[in-house]
Amino acid sequence: MQALTITPGQKDSLDLADLPEPEAAEGSVLVETLAVGLCATDREVIADEFGTAPEGRDYLVMGHENLGRVLEAPEGSGLAAGDLVVGIVRRPCAENCRACAAGEWDMCHTGNYTEHGIEALDGFARERWRGEPEDMVKLKPSLERVGVLLEPATILAKAWEQVDRIGSRAYFRPHVVAVTGAGPVGLLAALLGIQRGMEVHVFDLEEGGPKEALTKELGAVFHTESLAESGVSADITIECTGAPAVIREVLQNGAKNSVTCLTGVSEEGGEEPLDLGALNLSLVMDNRVVFGTINANRRHYLKAAEALAKADTSWLDKMISRRVALADYEQAFEDRDGDIKVVLDLA
């Protein structure tokens, strides 16, 4: 079968390879891959910024955002041939730390977890793969064209869950939400805010393009000015860019009793002036909370699946800018105007 692979330790080693069929020992459920979404993490793996091959091998199959269809499943597994499924990306650490043992591998204490397409586990950019029933989540048939968005949606399902839990510390009746960045994560953050009945403001520099159109179609307000210039006083802010300048502005412009979630991953080393004394004063005097989040566990996958099932699938479909055949994978990694989410189409 064909698979998109890289050789860890070698920059730009992306290759379409012929690999053996997945072995039965890999799992009792056989899945054919329908689609694989691409994101910045994939580019970083290709650039050899991180990424580890499975033990005993010199290559790693790419792809962590995924959607597949069950070909074979054992009786009593809750799955059957034809079911749509998404494989869960992160798996518990070998030490089975307390967090992993509790099913919270997204909060792993040791950092020795594995991740499909990233750390020591083959990804889903291959024609077929195997896993156990507990390693995947079943989706409704209506999500066949857009179910590949589930993995990024899990990040926001977790973010909103934690916002809700932090807010329950005291009186908290949020109404206004600010989302910085209108990429896939930002748009999904806005979607979940709209589904909660919030007034959502999305901030992005790309005026007049598909991001603005999707934001307005969702019922949110699109801004190209800065958060400070907008005058928006948000009860909840979800930062989705990872850009240090945007993060600084978000930290400096929180409302009283507000909760800010950081989801973007930043590069190290840049200098961005920040008055820590003023920030500390604001956090303390205004009862503000700032926290970071990454990855997701099974609970978040299930919540994200519910959110996608409630959404307008035509709106979700518009988030997918391009669908590229696996054989044309090089085109998928080209930077093109108007791209939001690019997907490898294996169907």
Rank of each mutant, 00 (worst) to 15 (best):
E271A: 07
N253V: 08
A327Q: 15
A309C: 09
T33P: 03
E95N: 13
Q252F: 02
R43Q: 15
P210M: 14
V70C: 12
E212H: 06
I238K: 06
I340G: 02
A80D: 07
A17W: 09
P74M: 08
H300D: 15
E206D: 15
S28G: 07
V45L: 15
L346R: 04
L71W: 00
A73H: 08
D204I: 06
G123R: 08
L38D: 07
H201P: 02
A25R: 12
Q2Y: 10
S142L: 13
K303T: 04
P92V: 02
A24W: 02
H300M: 12
T5G: 06
K11W: 02
Q162A: 13
D204L: 11
M198D: 02
T110V: 09
I166D: 00
G131L: 14
N287D: 01
A157L: 04
H175K: 14
T241W: 08
L316T: 04
I236R: 09
M285A: 11
V185R: 05
A80C: 06
G209H: 14
A220D: 08
D83Q: 01
A213F: 12
R57F: 03
P244S: 09
G209L: 15
H223M: 12
L276P: 00
S168H: 01
Q162N: 15
G219V: 12
V31S: 08
V343F: 01
D106Q: 14
L227W: 11
G208E: 15
E239I: 13
L71T: 07
G147Q: 04
R165Q: 14
L121N: 10
V284A: 11
S266V: 03
A278W: 07
N66W: 08
L227H: 14
F333S: 09
K318P: 07
V202P: 01
A25K: 13
A245M: 03
E217T: 06
G167N: 02
G270A: 10
A305R: 00
E132N: 12
R196F: 06
E212D: 04
F222N: 09
V137A: 02
L227S: 14
L227N: 11
L16K: 06
L150C: 07
D235Y: 09
K256F: 15
Q10V: 12
V45M: 09
G209V: 15
K11I: 11
A125C: 15
K318H: 10
T263H: 02
L187Y: 04
A332I: 01
R248G: 05
G269C: 04
W129Q: 10
D58M: 04
L38C: 04
T313F: 11
G82L: 13
G231W: 08
N280R: 11
E272Y: 00
G131T: 12
